[in-house]
Design a binder for these strands. Structure first.
Lengths: 255, 255
DNA sequence: CGACACTTTGAAGACGATCAACGCCGGTGG
DNA sequence: CCACCGGCGTTGATCGTCTTCAAAGTGTCG
């Protein structure tokens, strides 16, 4: 297969950085591209884990149901993100969540053994994988801490910040990339609570009208949200936001 | 150095499984044993990350302070557990938490580069590390979900279950391995809430008197706590509890 | 015996969940 | 073209849960 068929988003993945071009090309032949229509389940909670996935385009939701019918969104993935690496490396045999396509999705899927073999064969790949999973672990730990200690308002403010970093949005004005229902479920709160929280956020300098968000005072939000992690140099979200704050100061005082 | 000086707890670590004895011995020469008195800080939030640690004996607490003086316990580690591998592999330069010795602690510490080199040199080591960090990530994700969806009572019941698995306690009767203050802080709730929760737990079949805990109906607790993860085959806590439940059924109906 | 850390208990208040009603919008079908 | 519907979001009222503040009980150790 000519390597040109692989989207740039895959070739540029940090997971493959440090590999020789020919090794990368050889690895990529192990996967196949797979299209999912909006609403299609990629896998169910309880299904055997069979593949590692890289999202080429579209959005995938991980969620779990508990018997009383409630659904909790575990995470939402966009193009360029990978799925199930930790399930595979943890030797976890069955999926712990449901995965559903929120819109039309293209993923590249690789058999489970491919991931383990790639890590065995290429030291660089193994280190990239370690780095990526370590980072996942960190995010999850921070999330657990936030859920345990933050108010709903803080959680939402924090989420808005992270959105800007993940999607490279301009904090001064951007549109929510998915529905409020989904965001509320992602943050583990009720839609009603989320809705009311948006009003309170105005006091903190975040205006939300419809799907449009404006963060007026980045520095204040930074403080409001992460009084928690006062030493913030290592938090990528904070680093990215700090860069934006610095940039904003060079431009007009009020955007 | 003769390998016999290394405690069994280190030689038996899953991290070293699959390595040749001589490789393992060579690796172990890269570390040194380090004693910490009760109350001593192993490192501060914000300090540069310098070492990977394996606990030989004693208990270490990870915690974070936010400006308003509140402390949140991030995690508590016992002998046989490792610390800071994900900070190192995530290329995180500064510690994200404080680490303090809760009692007299012995750790084996290895320079940061040792961990990366070991992963580069030994495929088996890299895979063990991947497995261990993936597992950490999973635990953190589950914890985040629990914090977002469970009541205080459920959180405590769930914690009691995990204690039994981690410390190999007999659910029918065991003593809490650390103070209630610490447990409350670990679970992200106030001591008062924790204390009141213990009374409510009686209704669910868990009796707590002083530091002594008795779980009367394992099956019921299993259901009460993890109505969340109805497909539970993959959760090690559930597996371990399931085994205990099965065992309990072979003995007297009422313990 | 007193100091101190740890824990329990009570009363008040804040916060989020829940239930219910309604507004908005896009699509479908008559 | 309009009526109807379903998904989405807002708003209000109420209730239960957890936090907060305050006081007092328990235990250990010098």
């Amino acid at each position: 297969m000519p390597p040109t068929i692989y989207p740039d988003i895959i070739r540029a993945l940090p997971l493959f950085s440090g590999l020789h071009e020919q090794d990368k090309a050889a690895l990529l032949t192990g996967g196949r591209i797979c299209q999912c229509k909006r609403g299609q389940l990629l896998f169910h909670h309880g299904d055997p884990v069979t593949h590692f996935y890289i999202i080429i385009s579209g959005t995938v939701q991980f969620f779990r149901e508990n018997p009383d019918g409630h659904e909790k969104t575990i995470d939402v993935f966009k193009a360029g993100q990978t799925m199930c690496e930790s399930e595979i490396m943890d030797a976890c045999r069955h999926h712990r969540v449901n995965a559903i396509a929120l819109d039309d999705v293209a993923v590249m899927e690789f058999p489970m053994a491919w991931l383990k073999d790639a890590a065995k064969k290429h030291t660089a790949f193994a280190l990239n994988l370690l780095s990526s999973i370590s980072h996942q672990a960190h995010l999850a730990e921070v999330e657990a801490e936030h859920q345990a200690t933050m108010s709903a308002t803080q959680l939402v403010a924090c989420f808005m910040q992270r959105l800007c970093v993940l999607y490279d949005f301009e904090p001064a004005g951007f549109d929510l990339p998915y529905t409020k229902t989904l965001i509320a479920s992602r943050l583990g709160m009720e839609l009603e609570t989320f809705s009311r929280t948006l009003a309170k956020l105005k006091e903190q300098g975040i205006t939300v009208e419809g799907t449009h968000v404006m963060i007026h005072d980045l520095k204040h939000i930074e403080q409001y949200v992460c009084s928690l992690c006062s030493v913030s140099e290592d938090c990528p979200t904070h680093q990215a936001m700090a860069r934006r704050i610095a940039t904003a100061q060079h431009s007009t005082t009020q955007i």
